[in-house]
């Protein structure tokens, strides 16, 4: 008899969750039966994203924030993402070093993940892992992204509240800030406020927010928090900011809209992925891809026509197949 991982996860087993997450990372078929069973039990946890440049203090902040959240008895799941090496495929996952003090609290589950070539500051399986931790009974899920630059903003596709962490002393950071990372912030955090320049940075962010407010109407203006994560200073306020953003989302109906949009996008992404896999497998196996590439190289064929032909052929053949299947069944 094989182990019923879904049942164990619903009972709170960290071990079962850990194994399922490995399967999800590996895109192992065994994961999906389990995910089907867990899906009805998800959608309950609140998801907080922590993003910002490398070394800004995201891990330290995640740890300190988790301590604050735990005071109210809520259970916490942490996903800490670090980059994989594009050359070796391996990864050194170091976020956990700052999380040692959380290691033996049974109501906290921490998982380090490598990006495995996925761009955007996240791991591909992150959204699935959120669902696992949700089903595991975690009330709040905190995701630490890799250290990001300007346009690695995939976190907004997963988090309900995104916190952007900045640090003073990196020059005229705001002026050079491109849209991306500034615009995804629901909450700003100026960490390392013990370093000089935090008031200046705070003023710069506020000026930028004022300017944005003139460009377009917004229901929510991101609050700016100052923290010293290593000393646990400012974390209660940061948590309050997150909670008020949550309240805003719920009261305004945005929470529902955001989640709906996310579910729709994810469903499409999954369909896209599976269709692509099936079509590609077929094209590779029957040799058509190789033949077509040869023709493309010689300019005997253009990719626009190829694309149309393949889609048309594939659709008609899969419809034929379905009709045949139906005939044999009846």
């Amino acid at each position: 008899m094989s182990v019923d991982y879904a049942a164990q996860i619903l009972e709170g087993s960290h071990r079962a969750a850990a194994r399922l997450i490995s399967w999800l990372e590996d895109e192992d078929e065994r994961a999906y039966e389990c995910m089907r069973k867990l899906y009805p039990h998800t959608g309950r946890a609140y998801v907080v994203g922590i993003t910002g440049s490398p070394g800004a203090g995201k891990s330290t902040l995640t740890t300190a924030l988790t301590r604050v959240i735990r005071k109210s008895g809520l259970k916490v799941g942490i996903i800490a993402v670090d980059p994989s090496s594009p050359f070796t495929g391996g990864a050194l996952l170091g976020d956990r070093v700052r999380m040692s003090e959380l290691a033996d609290d049974p109501d906290i589950y921490i998982r380090s993940m490598a990006t495995r070539g996925f761009l955007g500051g996240m791991a591909k399986a992150a959204a699935d892992v959120v669902r696992v931790l949700d089903a595991l009974g975690k009330d709040v899920i905190v995701i630490e992204t890799v250290g990001v630059g300007q346009d690695e903003v995939d976190i907004v596709g997963v988090a309900d509240t995104t916190c952007v962490v900045m640090v003073p002393g990196l020059g005229d950071a705001i002026q050079s800030m491109k849209a991306g990372i500034m615009e995804i912030a629901d909450v700003f955090v100026i960490n390392k406020a013990d370093h000089p320049g935090s008031d200046m940075l705070c003023a710069e962010i506020c000026a930028r927010l004022d300017m944005d407010a003139q460009l377009r109407e917004r229901g929510w203006v991101a609050p700016v928090n100052k923290t010293v994560a290593v000393e646990g200073v400012g974390l209660d306020e940061m948590w309050l900011s997150i909670e008020s953003h949550r309240k805003y989302l719920l009261d305004s109906g945005r929470f529902y809209d955001n989640r709906r949009e996310r579910i729709s996008r994810e469903a499409l992404r999954m369909i896209h992925g599976e269709l692509f896999r099936v079509v590609r497998e077929q094209l590779e196996q029957n040799g058509r891809l190789d033949a077509a590439v040869e023709q493309l190289m010689n300019r005997k064929l253009d990719p626009y026509t190829l694309m149309r032909d393949i889609v048309t052929d594939w659709l008609s053949s899969s419809q034929c197949k379905r009709r045949r299947d139906e005939d044999t069944q009846s």
């Binding site: 994989s84 090496s85 070796t88 495929g89 391996g90 990864a91 050194l92 996952l93 170091g94 956990r96 070093v97 700052r98 040692s100 290691a103 380090s112 490598a114």
Partner: peptide
């Protein structure tokens, strides 16, 4: 070990 393709979690000191 990371160079050899593994995913290595370093936990740090004093464990």
């Amino acid at each position: 070990c990371a160079e050899a393709g593994m995913e290595v979690v370093y936990t740090g000191l004093r464990q």
